[in-house]
Computed example of a mutant assay.
Amino acid sequence: MLPAGWLIAAVFVAILLTSWVTFTLTRLDRLHARVDAAQSALDAQLVRRAAALLQLAERPDSTLAPDAAHALVDTARAALAVQHWQQDERRNVENQVGRAIAGLQQDRARLPADAVTELAEAAARVVIARRFFNDAVRDTRTLRARRMPRLLHLAGRRELPLFFDIEDTSVFTDSPAIDRGPGTTPSPPT
């Protein structure tokens, strides 16, 4: 028979191990929920950006050449037609949208100001949403890569989330001077 001290120590170790597994499992579930929420937010911002591009291209006062406007409409509609979160297809279509928006930068002064503002905001929101999504994916993959969650299969049958990398570094920017709100003066260019 085991002495009482060893039995108490074994129960204590079992409680600690069970608590750790429960904590890790809960954290992993929360991280997967965070990935899902960030993916939904990113999807909404990608749709908003494509809709803003479509609106700009279809406006009669956009001053775009008819063939350029038609190409933008086709690009925006292709992005809006992607129904599911299919990584490769979505990435290719969104890269085309990003390149189309970057190509409008030189014609910015001739385009309607309200449509330009909406497109610039939508493009900036995509950058932010993509960062949030990729941060959530990174945190989830980091926890899942640890030895114990891997050995105990704490993620269950959930797929390993993938990063979403698109070419969105050339954002459709407003201007070189940044408006910081009322009562502030812009900093001089460096």
Rank of each mutant, 00 (worst) to 15 (best):
I101N: 03
V73W: 00
G181F: 08
V21I: 14
H153R: 14
Q106E: 05
V127D: 03
A10M: 12
T184W: 01
P182C: 11
V126H: 04
D29F: 03
A102L: 08
T190R: 13
S62I: 01
R48Q: 13
T22L: 15
A124P: 00
L72K: 00
T169R: 15
A69N: 02
N92Q: 13
I128K: 10
I101Q: 13
A71M: 09
P182I: 15
H153G: 09
T22N: 15
P161M: 14
R131M: 08
A37P: 01
T18A: 13
D43W: 13
R34K: 09
S175L: 04
A100G: 00
T26P: 01
P189Q: 10
S170P: 02
V21G: 04
R144T: 14
T185C: 06
R144C: 11
Q39R: 15
R27L: 07
D88S: 08
N92C: 05
P149D: 09
A102G: 07
V93W: 08
T22I: 00
E89Q: 13
A37S: 09
R91F: 04
P189L: 07
V47R: 15
S62Y: 00
R125F: 04
L143Y: 14
R180M: 14
L151S: 09
F132N: 09
R180H: 12
F23K: 08
A33I: 02
L143I: 14
A109P: 00
Q87M: 10
T24C: 05
R34A: 15
A9F: 03
T142M: 11
A52N: 04
